[in-house]
Simulated scan of single mutants.
Amino acid sequence: MRIRVLGAAVTGALALSALAVPAAQADTVEGDTTISNVVVNGGKAVVVGATATKTISVTFKVTDDSGVKDAMAILWHGSDFDNSDSGAVATGNDGYASCTATSSTTANCKASYEIEPQYNAVNAVAGTWKVWGIASGKDADYVQKDNVKTFKVQRLSKLTANASPEPVKKGKTITVTGKLTRANWDAATYSGYSGQSVKLQFRKKGTSTYTTVKTIKTTSTGGLSTTVTASADGYYRYSFAGTSTTPAVSATGDYIDVQ
């Protein structure tokens, strides 16, 4: 599949035209229209796997003393909106948000978006994205802002752990191996995440809390391997705290029977 990256600046210009407001510089306000309470994906980071399209929603409130006419939000990534290197326009409704009046001056608006690997999700754009917003009142007042909200778009992570041998005699050496991978949007697969600090943790049988035993780093292929001394029955796992581009993840604990 040919990788395509959707730039938001073009769609921003289309939004201005669609809303029939004058061409505007960044963060332009004419009149008393406001956009507030912007929430992306329920307030959670947008975590996208290697192949499946992720559908998310954005909600926000618009106010204008004459009533709300139209509103639109565009998701974008880049140093600035005019030079954005990826983005997403709302699906359906010609890119408009669906706005429901809650009073004569206020409306709650909502729109859905798709983040698709090898289209608008490529490895280079993982991290912080922004929401471009525009809304107009029935009296032709409007507000347009390049960044009404920031949010994270991250590459889904996976982590494994395997402790051996099992069973093992008390005082003997246990080897715990594993691997940290994350979605490679460019290749539509999962690739090792190298050079990352990962905690080896242990939970004693009959307890509910993991404690950190040591911290090691992943190899160039995302591999993990370290040794510990067998002391008690329990579960070993690896735990990764995450980065700006990749969410935190913990492996399923692997049980060791110590005899």
Rank of each mutant, 00 (worst) to 15 (best):
226 T>P: 02
228 V>G: 01
230 A>W: 09
207 T>A: 05
231 S>M: 09
231 S>K: 15
214 K>Q: 12
230 A>D: 12
223 G>N: 11
219 T>R: 05
206 G>E: 02
214 K>C: 02
229 T>N: 09
226 T>K: 00
231 S>A: 15
206 G>S: 10
210 Y>E: 03
207 T>K: 00
216 I>N: 02
227 T>V: 12
228 V>A: 11
226 T>V: 08
234 G>L: 14
234 G>P: 12
216 I>E: 10
233 D>Y: 13
236 Y>L: 11
208 S>Q: 09
230 A>H: 10
223 G>K: 05
231 S>T: 15
231 S>D: 14
224 L>S: 01
232 A>F: 11
229 T>M: 04
218 T>H: 05
235 Y>I: 13
225 S>C: 07
226 T>F: 00
228 V>Q: 11
211 T>Y: 06
216 I>A: 09
218 T>G: 06
218 T>W: 05
215 T>C: 00
209 T>W: 10
206 G>T: 02
213 V>K: 09
233 D>K: 11
230 A>P: 14
209 T>L: 08
220 S>C: 02
236 Y>E: 14
221 T>K: 12
207 T>G: 04
232 A>I: 05
220 S>D: 13
210 Y>F: 15
209 T>V: 15
233 D>Q: 10
231 S>Y: 13
212 T>N: 06
218 T>R: 01
223 G>A: 13
224 L>M: 08
235 Y>H: 13
228 V>P: 05
236 Y>H: 09
210 Y>I: 06
207 T>Q: 03
227 T>K: 13
215 T>G: 02
212 T>Y: 00
236 Y>T: 13
216 I>R: 00
226 T>R: 00
232 A>W: 14
207 T>R: 00
233 D>I: 13
216 I>C: 07
228 V>N: 03
216 I>W: 07
219 T>N: 10
225 S>L: 03
233 D>V: 13
230 A>N: 12
210 Y>W: 07
221 T>S: 14
223 G>V: 02
225 S>Q: 10
212 T>Q: 10
218 T>N: 04
218 T>F: 04
207 T>E: 10
236 Y>W: 14
209 T>K: 11
225 S>E: 08
224 L>N: 02
222 G>W: 09
223 G>W: 02
222 G>F: 08
230 A>E: 14
221 T>E: 11
233 D>M: 12
209 T>Y: 06
231 S>L: 12
217 K>N: 15
231 S>E: 12
220 S>W: 03
225 S>W: 02
207 T>M: 03
231 S>G: 15
208 S>G: 04
232 A>S: 15
232 A>Q: 15
218 T>V: 07
208 S>I: 04
217 K>H: 07
220 S>Y: 08
216 I>D: 11
235 Y>M: 12
233 D>G: 11
234 G>C: 14
233 D>N: 15
233 D>L: 12
217 K>W: 09
218 T>I: 05
212 T>A: 08
225 S>T: 14
224 L>P: 03
231 S>F: 11
210 Y>G: 04
219 T>E: 07
232 A>C: 10
208 S>A: 13
222 G>N: 07
227 T>I: 07
234 G>Y: 12
212 T>V: 08
215 T>H: 00
224 L>A: 06
207 T>W: 00
208 S>P: 03
212 T>G: 01
209 T>Q: 09
213 V>M: 09
225 S>I: 06
219 T>L: 01
226 T>S: 02
216 I>M: 04
234 G>K: 10
210 Y>V: 08
212 T>L: 02
212 T>E: 10
230 A>R: 08
221 T>F: 03
227 T>R: 06
223 G>R: 01
216 I>H: 01
235 Y>G: 11
